[in-house]
């Protein structure tokens, strides 16, 4: 088995994780759970999903240097700001 096939297989796993996390997010919404902890948990799931998409689907995870980081930074900054805003309004 060569690495390309491994790469695709890994993306398939990532895909399943993404789907699973999305369902969790949906059920949190459906159960109308609310509060700071819940919100931050859902946000964390979303940030992980984003990082998975960046690292595996976009392929940034196997880069060296600066280009490894833009999606991570992009998730980090709004993620932090959103957390602060929700923390302050809780």
């Amino acid at each position: 088995m060569n690495n390309k096939v491994m790469g695709v297989r890994r993306c398939t796993w990532v895909y399943l994780v993404l789907m699973f996390f999305s369902f969790i997010t949906y059920f949190v919404g459906r159960l109308e759970l609310s509060g700071l902890t819940i919100s931050l948990f859902v946000l964390l799931l979303a940030l992980i999903k984003g990082q998975l998409v960046g690292a595996y689907f976009m392929g940034l995870g196997r880069l060296r240097g600066l280009w490894r980081w833009p999606v991570f930074i992009w998730l980090f900054i709004p993620g932090t700001l959103i957390s602060i805003a929700f923390y302050l309004s809780a």
Partner: peptide, 10 residues
């Protein structure tokens, strides 16, 4: 992926 939880769920 960010928009969905932010606007619909959180």
């Amino acid at each position: 992926l960010i928009l969905f939880p932010l606007v619909y769920v959180m």
